[in-house]
Amino acid sequence: MQYESLMSIPWSHGTFWVFIALLIFVGLFGRKILTPVVSALDKRAVNVRQSLDEASRLKAEAEAMLRDARKKRAEAIAEAKDILERAKEEAARTARELAAEAEMRAAARERMVQERIDAAQASAIAEVRSTAIEVAIAATTEALRAGFSASEDAKLVDHAIAEVPAAFSRRAA
């Protein structure tokens, strides 16, 4: 079966007139319809291009911020290590100072104790001398009053020496 419009005069069939009407419609209204569609597509392309430009700009900024953050992190780590090292040095120095100060205080206390011992020893020696002098004076006074002989004097001296501890205890009380 053959198509009739190809064998006869084209304007005698409806298909020809529909085609002509379509051409007239596209000719008259095609530009009015195509302009907003093309405009919308152009705007869309511009928006996409701007979005891509913005995205690449934001990516560049983010990469720059990342580099800065890594640099600052490295600086912070280096600074923290430096602070830690200084703190260790300060702690060691403080420990040395405290040890020297403690040693100095211990030496000062030792000197004070030695001075007290020396003072107590000197006081004890002075007290022994004083007591010995008192006992000797008492014995001499007794010997002079009684007029003893040499053997009696020796007994008196022995008795005086034996009385020294008692004299100390009386003096302490």
Rank of each mutant, 00 (worst) to 15 (best):
G147W: 15
E134I: 14
M7A: 12
D158H: 00
Q50F: 09
A87Q: 01
L34T: 06
S8C: 05
Q50V: 05
T35V: 11
E97H: 04
V18P: 11
L98K: 12
A100L: 05
A136K: 11
R70Y: 15
D158W: 00
S51V: 06
R73H: 14
A106I: 12
A119E: 14
F29N: 00
L23W: 10
R116C: 07
F16M: 04
M7K: 08
E79L: 09
E103I: 02
I117Y: 05
F148Y: 14
E115V: 12
A91M: 04
K81P: 01
L156K: 10
R70Q: 15
A126H: 15
S169H: 11
A167E: 06
A108T: 06
P36M: 00
T131Y: 10
L58K: 03
A136H: 12
E75T: 03
A160F: 09
R57P: 00
E54F: 02
E152C: 00
L144P: 00
E101D: 06
D118Y: 07
A173R: 13
I20A: 11
S12W: 12
K72E: 09
M7L: 13
V135F: 06
M65P: 01
A74L: 08
A78F: 14
A60Q: 04
A150Y: 12
T140A: 03
I9H: 14
S151I: 02
Q2L: 15
E97G: 01
K32W: 13
K72N: 07
A107N: 14
R86K: 10
D68V: 04
R171C: 05
E79Q: 09
R49P: 01
A166E: 14
A87K: 02
L58F: 02
E54K: 05
F148S: 05
A136Q: 09
D53S: 03
E97I: 06
V128W: 15
E127A: 15
V48D: 11
R145K: 09
A80S: 06
A78E: 14
A119P: 05
R86V: 04
T15Q: 10
R109E: 07
S51R: 11
E4H: 13
A80T: 04
V164P: 00
F19P: 00
S56V: 12
E85K: 04
L34V: 07
Q114R: 15
A139H: 02
S5I: 13
L22V: 05
G27R: 02
A95P: 02
R86E: 03
A136N: 09
E127N: 13
E85V: 02
V38Y: 11
S149R: 09
D68Y: 08
K81H: 05
A173D: 13
F148K: 08
S51Q: 11
R116S: 07
L41D: 07
L58A: 05
R171F: 10
M112T: 10
K71G: 05
T140Y: 02
F25R: 01
A55Q: 03
H159K: 06
A172L: 09
R57Y: 04
